[in-house]
Amino acid sequence: MNTIEGWTEVAFNNRDPVYLQVVRHFKERIATGKLAAGQETPSRRELGTLMKINPNTVQKAYKEMEEQQLIITEGNSPSRITNDKELLNQIRSELIGEAIGAFVASVRKIDVPIEELLQLVKNKYEEGEPEHD
């Protein structure tokens, strides 16, 4: 699998620190299978160039991911995605939980009965809208 593919697709927002958005991008790629356990990540310099961000920002993101044990860096070897299956499952659950939390917070204001809401969600989900990266 090519480690460079898809790294320039990030649209950074102005609310959150860029390094945390990079970490989130890694988590999303892991959760969707675009990054596999044990897969080599781009070098810090390479990722900075691809994403058009400061190499120091990438370094901060990598440090954060190492602290969260999302990536493993041994000696002078390239960093790799963790092989920890439990952690990889937690990433997926975390992202799903965040999305559901934001969704529920926004629709709760509309006061839709739960049965109607569940049917609407089911219908929309089954429409098979194209995925967005």
Rank of each mutant, 00 (worst) to 15 (best):
E131N: 06
I72M: 08
V121C: 09
H132L: 14
P130E: 07
A37L: 10
F12E: 11
E116A: 04
Q68S: 13
A61R: 02
S43I: 14
Y125K: 00
Y19C: 01
A37Q: 01
E94M: 09
S106W: 11
N2P: 15
L88E: 05
G75V: 15
G97W: 13
I100Q: 03
L20V: 02
D133V: 15
W7C: 05
Q119C: 01
N123V: 08
V18T: 14
E40D: 06
A11M: 13
M65N: 02
N56E: 11
F12S: 04
M1Y: 09
E74M: 05
N13W: 10
V104F: 07
F103V: 02
R24L: 10
R45M: 04
K60S: 03
A61W: 05
W7I: 14
G101H: 10
E94R: 07
E5P: 03
Q90F: 09
H132S: 10
L35Q: 03
Q68D: 11
D84L: 05
F12K: 00
I81V: 14
N76M: 13
M65R: 04
L47P: 00
Q68R: 11
W7S: 00
E46M: 15
I110S: 05
G97T: 05
A11C: 06
I72A: 01
A99I: 04
K27W: 07
K124E: 01
R24T: 12
R29Y: 03
T82C: 12
Q21F: 02
E86L: 12
E66I: 08
V112A: 00
S106E: 14
D84W: 11
N89G: 04
V107E: 02
P42F: 09
T73D: 04
K85E: 13
T82Y: 07
N56G: 12
L117S: 05
G6C: 08
E129M: 12
I100M: 05
A102P: 06
N54W: 05
V107H: 04
V107W: 10
T3C: 09
I4Q: 09
I110Q: 13
I110T: 05
P17Y: 01
S77P: 11
Q90G: 08
P17W: 00
M65P: 11
A105S: 14
Y62C: 06
D111Y: 06
G75A: 14
